[in-house]
Amino acid sequence: MSALLEVRGLSVEFDLKDGAVSRVIDGLNFELAAGRTLGIVGESGCGKSMTALAIMRLVPVPPGRIAEGAIRLAGENLLDASEARMREVRGNDVSMIFQEPMTSLNPVYTIGDQIGETVRLHQGLSRRDARDRAIEMLRAVSIPAPEKRVDEYPHQLSGGMRQRVMIAMALACRPQVLIADEPTTALDVTVQAQIFDLLKELQQQTEAAVILITHDMGAIAEMAQRVVVMYAGRKVEEAPVDEMLTNPKHPYTRGLIACVPHLEADPALERPPLMEIPGVVPSVAELGRGGCPFAPRCAEAMDRCPQDMPPETAVGEDHTAACWLYSATEAAA
C-alpha cells in the first residue's frame, strides 16, 4: 500500500503582533492511501484546520508561513510547487469542505454558478456543460429537484443542503484527496448522519482519499480507518481506529475518548475537567520551550514532562504515542 498523500515534518509558523513567532504546527507526520479515510482529532486551536490549509497551501501569508517539511501528493512535493501549479491542484486534485456551510458559499452567486465554476476552471467545460455537470453533482449528493435548485442562491437552502452543495462542489472534479474540516459541526444531529453516509458513499464511488478533521470521536469511529490525535500543533498519538478507541495510550487521547460515552449517557453532565481547562490556544504561543505542551493539564505529568519534549514512540503494533509514560529512552539532554 503506497501512500497517495504523505506529510513529513510539517511545521507552520505565525508571526505574532509582539514580534514573537508561534509554531502552530510542529513536525507533523502522517500518510494516507487512496480510498482510505484518515481522521484528525483534537480540540479547537490544536492546529488541525491549519493542517488542512497547509495541504492546500492556503495558510495566510503573512503572518503565517510553512516553515519546513514536505507534503507529497503522488510523489510531488506541493511545498515546492509554483503558485500556478497549486491553483491547478486546488479544487482539482485536492478539494476541501469547510466547517461553516452557512457562510462558505458566496451569497451573491447561484449554487450552479459556484459548482460550475470549478469544472469550467479545471476541465475547461463550457458554461452549458458546466451547468449540466452541476445538476449531475447536485443529484449525486441527493439534492431533490436539482434542475430547479441549480439556479437558486445559497440563502434559499438549509444548512444541510448547503453542506451537500459544498460536497458537490468539492467532488465535481473527482479529486484524489478530499479534506473535510468539521463538515458536520454546524449541522443538526440527524443531518450529520446523512452527510457522513453521503461522504462514505461518494468515497466508495470515487476512490478518493479523505482526511476528516473533527473533534468528535464518534464521527471518527464511523468514518475513518486511521486516526491522528493532535494537541497544540503536535501529533500526540496515531493508530488504527479500533486500536485507538479500545486501547488509547496518551493521557490526552484517553481524556478525549472518555468524553464520548459520557455524552451519550448523561448529556452535558460530568464532562471530564480536561475539557474545561482554559488557556489552550495561548499555550501554542509558548511552544518551543521544550516541554510537553499537555503537561499543565495532564493528571499523570511527571517532573520531566514540562522540561523535555516526548518523542514519538511505538506503543503497540502500528500504534505510536508521544508521551514519557511510554518512552523507554531518556532524552539526550
Partner: peptide
C-alpha cells in the same frame, strides 16, 4: 476561502 480552495 472557498473560492481560493477551488484554485481560482
Amino acid at each position: 476561502r472557498t473560492a481560493r480552495a477551488k484554485g481560482l
